[in-house]
Design a protein around this nucleic acid. Structure first.
Lengths: 168, 168
DNA sequence: GACATACTGTTGACACATCAATAGTTGCAG
DNA sequence: CTGCAACTATTGATGTGTCAACAGTATGTC
């Protein structure tokens, strides 16, 4: 293996910041939701995604992709949400492999109750600290990093995606 | 509670991207390190931080802050790393409460072995997708979000930091 | 139409993180 | 110098995520 291309000074600083963010932000948001609403960030994402569909329901696999989680993780999340009465599961009519998760009224009420505190947390931790211009830059950077994010980091021949990632 | 300030269109898009990133990036990096080196991202961060000090050693509390983890999490991480022979723990001479983690030669060799693959992964997932200008913007945004990141999201009276977060 | 292949969702076993409680230590206030 | 508050690190209990294996279903090919 040849000598890798190391990170230069600016890349290094950007990376240290991004890495720290990936540790701190989820922890802080999880903490707020857990404390105030007894939900994890992932739970909230799933409920929020469901609440924004027209008919409050979605196939598990689509939901997993939208919430950027593995199918296995989503399955456990939905199980918990189902136990709490926020979501119900039914089999899909057109494809008997598929399962459709449906947001109950109770679940809808829960999202609406949780949303203000969560949004306020996001605001105080992120957007209150950025200029409008930076918000635009961040959106653009996010788009760049997420488009085709599932290209393997190195071309490993005949090595498909390790089942379960959010990569279709 | 008054009606919260919701996110506008651009904030919303930026947030959805950032949230997706916070799910996907750590998972992908963890996956690479786990597969190739049997290390978690947090393990690697701790080893890397230690390797960059002058004397390869640091107090647990300082290490926790630098790696952006809770003390409790760090304690378990260092336990695992110690079991594998990458790190050793000794009591601090000047403060008998404190513990100093020390990177062993074996641990140093491990970081040096793991670094190229990890850096390559970071490169392919992040920096290869950004322009130089965007890298600068990202560094700036990271700085803005991390400075004083421990200010509570809302002023809760007499409600100290819930022990264990990376907030001094 | 029968077989091979790919897809969907779930689960058992395991690894890991978090929370709260703890023991030991320091340092300051009176 | 004594007692109280704050700090440091660890740990038991619990909840959650990950990986690999699995059963059931769809799709395409001959």
């Amino acid at each position: 293996m040849s000598e890798p291309r190391w990170l230069d000074g600016q890349e290094r600083e950007a990376w240290l910041s991004l890495a720290a963010l990936m540790f701190v932000l989820p922890a802080a948001l999880d903490s707020q939701l857990q404390r105030d609403e007894d939900l994890s960030m992932a739970d909230y994402m799933v409920l929020a995604m469901l609440s924004e569909t027209g008919d409050r329901q979605m196939r598990m696999s689509d939901l997993a992709a939208l919430a950027s989680t593995s199918q296995s993780r989503l399955s456990r999340i939905v199980s918990r949400l189902e136990q709490k009465g926020f979501v119900s599961r039914t089999m899909a009519a057109e494809d008997r492999r598929a399962v459709v998760a449906h947001l109950t009224d109770h679940g809808m009420a829960k999202v609406e109750q949780a949303a203000p505190g969560h949004v306020e947390a996001v605001r105080s931790m992120v957007f209150d600290r950025l200029t409008d211009e930076q918000v635009g830059q961040l959106a653009e950077i996010g788009r760049a990093l997420l488009t085709d994010a599932c290209t393997p980091h190195r071309a490993l021949p005949a090595d498909g995606h390790p089942q379960g990632t959010a990569c279709p």
